[in-house]
Design a protein around this nucleic acid. Structure first.
Length: 435
RNA sequence: GGGGGCGUAGCUCAGCAGGUUAGAGCGCUGCCCUGUCACGGCAGAGGUCGCGGGUUCGAGUCCCGUCGCUCCCGCCA
């Protein structure tokens, strides 16, 4: 294959080049034909004088439809008249690899739902592509950090025989003669890795939530980033890891794409200072009340409006976009979160908020078998289907903790997008199974 | 699951207190245009007004139902 990417054309002036991409625009005039061609690296102008009568090549250009996949060959020439990069390709041959039907069904300003119907066309736009370049950079930076710190990557099963925790509803699937569930979280399995002595693990993978949620930040399948650390002292160690890790990721994204993100999405990516502010849930509520906001009562979590208001308060007070909210009451946390020794109504847990949205839930886990059983009993958890999990703690489990992290929510906030659907390659929701 | 908003041309939308052949911009088709670059000009095609029912002399417009989309709440990452 002899393909020249559009971004390298400036270094090929005077040479022949073969550009392969999509027809962006055709301007077919009396004496002169212009085609703007697009590939994944940019746009370039292609020019062809019209013969009298029109040559075969002229006719081919006239017949081009927007978004057709083409291969075109010609000589690269510098020309100051060309506003697009000051150069153009003098067309010598043209092959239509795959013609596009006239009239593409979506435009740049089409509604999101309609754009998702035609997602592959939507994703041809450079600004949509940037989303996934950023995602690639972010995931790469995450893995860099994990590897440097001695983490092991695991891949846990997505078929499960029972719920991994209460709360979120499960998708049921047929499984031969029996019934299976789609994993709503790798929670139990990453804890198994702790019991297995892996020390520090991570997983980036799909999770499934059967909640009919109709909001801009929920989907039924999304990519979860999960981390679990052994031999910690408390949830503080988990937060201390997460903030260093995130600062590294944001710095890497800013370095690679900061300018493009600002130009494309009008959002400045701020690399956060470490440590992030930490506020207990009760203090957070008090801060909200002091500032004149409504805050949920004792025993309740922050609701979304309070989360937004609280993030704004922290921004004002500490100049920080991130906040750990810590020490949730055991009433709103699962049975396996470790309790505070001095106050068993509180858990060693935290949420991480970024610009008002929940990115993470984390905690130190209860690794002492008897204590864990007692907490399960207190929460009236049916032990029988999760006996395999409880067994993890019977033969020496290290103290450990970790967090789950929504990749799409991170991306949404990094790019100033209002909806996770915008930053998901293919969104899955209660009414969306296609494409 | 609860609440609000929306559904008119391929796309984005307008349609005043119900009234005669339902409009605009973009796109599309054809013709014209000596280098365009958001090219420009002229002409044209294209609409079961989401669907079903009702009120009315008359419904895109009002009412009921239904489907779809969307946002907020609940749930959470």
């Amino acid at each position: 294959m002899n393909r020249t990417l559009i971004e390298v054309l400036p270094s090929r002036v005077g040479e022949q080049a073969t550009v392969r991409g999509w027809v962006h625009t055709v301007r077919d005039q009396k004496r002169m034909q212009f085609v703007i061609v697009r590939d994944e690296t940019g746009l370039a102008q292609v020019v062809l004088p019209k013969q009298e009568p029109p040559s075969e090549l002229n006719e081919s250009v006239s017949a081009l439809t927007v978004e057709s996949a083409v291969t075109l060959m010609g000589t690269v020439v510098a020309d100051e008249r060309v506003k697009l990069g000051g150069l153009e390709i003098k067309l010598e041959s043209l092959v239509v690899d795959s013609p596009a039907e006239p009239e593409v069904p979506i435009a740049a300003d089409s509604a999101l739902d309609k754009r998702i119907d035609w997602r592959y066309l939507d994703l041809r736009r450079p600004d949509r592509r940037l989303i996934f370049e950023v995602q690639s950079t972010a995931e790469h930076a995450m893995r860099d950090f994990w590897r440097k710190e001695g983490f092991i990557e695991i891949h846990t099963p997505k078929f499960m025989g029972s719920a991994s925790e209460s709360g979120a509803e499960l998708f049921k699937v047929e499984y031969f003669e029996t019934q299976a569930y789609l994993a709503q979280s790798p929670q139990f399995y990453k804890q198994m890795a702790m019991a297995a002595g892996f020390g520090k693990v991570f997983e980036v993978g799909p999770v499934f939530r059967a909640n009919p949620s109709f909001t801009s930040r929920h989907d039924t399948e999304f990519t979860s980033v999960d981390v679990e650390l052994a031999w910690i002292e408390s949830h503080e160690d988990v937060m201390a890891f997460e903030e260093r890790w995130l600062a590294h990721v944001l710095a890497a994204v800013k370095e690679a794409h900061g300018q493009a993100i600002e130009e494309t999405f009008d959002t400045e990516l701020v690399v956060p200072r470490v440590p992030f502010p930490r506020v207990t849930l009760e203090d957070a509520k008090q801060m909200l009340r002091d500032a004149g906001h409504d805050a949920p009562g004792v025993g309740h979590d922050l609701d979304p409006p309070s989360e937004r208001a609280f993030s704004a308060l922290i921004k004002e007070r500490d100049g920080h976009e991130f906040t750990f909210v810590t020490d949730y009451p055991s009433t709103v946390r699962p049975f396996y979160h470790m309790r505070h020794p001095e106050d068993p109504t509180l858990t060693r847990s935290f949420d991480l908020l970024w610009r008002g949205i929940e990115l993470t839930t984390g905690a130190q886990r209860e690794h002492r078998s008897e204590q864990l059983l007692a907490q399960a009993a207190e929460k009236k958890v049916d032990i029988e289907p999760i006996q395999y999990y409880l067994n993890f703690f019977r033969y020496g489990a290290p103290p450990h903790g970790g967090f789950g992290f929504g990749l799409t929510r991170l991306l949404m906030q990094m790019l100033g997008q209002e909806n996770v659907r915008e930053v998901t390659f293919l969104y899955r929701g209660p009414h969306r199974l296609e494409p």
